[in-house]
């Protein structure tokens, strides 16, 4: 079986896959915490977020497959593309690190996704609008949960403040990509299907500033933003993640599970 490429995907398929890949990769990352979280309650909480995200990815992959019309199902997309075929933003594939990194990654992402899903709920594409309506509620909780932790880690102990500050420094360079748009996106925005993400920046910054103020954190300035994930050029980490994720499908090609 050959590796699936998505270079010639239609704008709608590509758009849907990017959203699906974000959700799957971040969901997968969070699932790595299971059994290892700082306390039992948090173990369960992180698994809930992971399950929400994996659920989102499944709905989106299924729709992408239908829109593409070539008979690919959710697993064909998730398990049979190599890293360059994945179009998630770099932020979500960053390793879990310590709990501070995981929480900061979740906060920066959720603060973006909540207004994103809200806008997508009004999409001219009914399927995307329906997926967004469900995801919006999930994202609202993810944001609440991660923001509460950002505040506690920022305003907790000296050590936690140091760790969350460090996490912010690790991750901030990946936030620029959230607001990128290419021709495929713009074409869909014009048709009322996609969200103009550049318009989401003020709200995202407001959320970030508000929570950082409570947490005693400062938004980093003048950081050179990393880019590439949306175009299939990833960090070193995604390959390892996929080696894990895809192992059985690769070792036993064609088997069904």
């Amino acid at each position: 079986m050959t590796t699936l490429h998505i270079d010639d995907a239609s704008p709608l398929v590509l758009y849907t896959l990017r959203l699906a890949d974000n959700a799957l990769v971040l969901g997968h990352r969070l699932s790595e915490w299971t059994g290892h979280a700082p306390m039992l309650e948090e173990d369960i909480a992180l698994a809930n977020v992971a399950l929400d995200l994996i659920g989102q990815s499944r709905a989106l992959y299924t729709y992408a497959g239908e829109a593409e019309g070539e008979g690919r199902d959710e697993d064909a997309f998730a398990y049979l593309r190599d890293a360059e075929g994945f179009r998630n933003v770099l932020l979500v594939e960053q390793p879990n690190g310590d709990f501070a990194v995981t929480i900061m990654r979740q906060f920066l992402y959720s603060a973006f996704m909540l207004p994103f899903w809200r806008k997508l709920m009004g999409s001219a594409d009914e399927r995307l609008a329906a997926i967004a309506a469900k995801a919006e509620k999930e994202a609202a909780y993810h944001l609440r949960h991660s923001a509460e932790w950002v505040i506690r880690l920022g305003d907790g102990t000296e050590e936690s403040h140091e760790r969350i500050t460090d996490a912010l420094a690790d991750l901030w360079m990946f936030t620029g990509e959230l607001f990128e748009m290419d021709d495929a996106d713009r074409a869909l925005v014009e048709r009322g299907i996609a969200v103009d993400v550049s318009a989401l920046r003020p709200e995202w910054e407001r959320t970030v500033d508000e929570i950082f103020a409570e947490a005693g954190l400062t938004r980093p300035a003048d950081v050179w933003m990393q880019t590439g994930g949306r175009g299939g050029r990833h960090s070193e980490h995604l390959g390892f993640l996929l080696a894990d994720l895809q192992f059985l499908q690769r070792a036993y090609p064609g088997a069904s599970w």
């Binding site: 700082p38 306390m39 948090e42 709990f99 880690l153 907790g156 102990t157 050590e159 936690s160 760790r163």
Partner: peptide, 11 residues
Amino acid sequence: NGAWVREAATA
């Protein structure tokens, strides 16, 4: 690994 997180929450 979680000790500092629990301490932060309590603090």
